[in-house]
């Protein structure tokens, strides 16, 4: 699945995604949380934490403006929400090259779709990055 953070293009494997929802207007803040954590939402009775992907990946620029979208990653018995700007569509990516030298650990590599560069993310590594942000805060 392809999506955007402002103008940059990213991709996540479709199998890792449970659903995409419109970001809510209000958030319940998570106390003592790292900066990237936007808050928690009530998803049909479940409490799901949402992180701003831009902040998590240390992409320079203003925090992702809402209303955006929240990508819900399937993490077995729980979910992790990623705040993004918008979804572009679904494409298959054949070849993933090495990531940029200073990229976050959550980046699996770079791919090309036509003329456009796409950063491919690793869902497991994203999850681990969030947990690390909590413990090293």
């Amino acid at each position: 699945m392809l999506f955007r953070l402002e103008k940059d293009r990213y991709a996540l494997p479709l199998s890792a995604i449970r659903e995409v929802i419109v970001a809510p207007d209000t958030w319940t803040r998570v106390p003592r949380a790292p900066r990237a954590v936007r808050g928690v939402i009530n998803l049909r009775g479940r409490v799901v934490p949402v992180v701003d992907l831009r902040e998590l990946l240390d992409v320079p620029g203003a925090p992702t403006s809402t209303p955006g979208r929240v990508v819900l990653l399937d993490r077995g018995r729980r979910e992790l929400g990623l705040l993004i700007s918008d979804v572009d569509g679904i494409e298959s990516i054949e070849k993933v090259g090495p990531p940029a030298p200073k990229a976050s650990l959550a980046v699996k590599g770079l791919a090309r779709l036509g003329a456009l560069p796409v950063t491919v993310l690793d869902p497991d590594a994203l999850d681990a990055t969030v947990a690390r942000a909590f413990t090293t805060k």
Binding site: P31, R32, V40, P49, R78, V130
Partner: peptide, 11 residues
């Protein structure tokens, strides 16, 4: 609290 929220001390 599910991961990662269980990592927050005081909740």
């Amino acid at each position: 609290l599910a991961r990662p929220l269980d990592l927050v001390p005081g909740l």
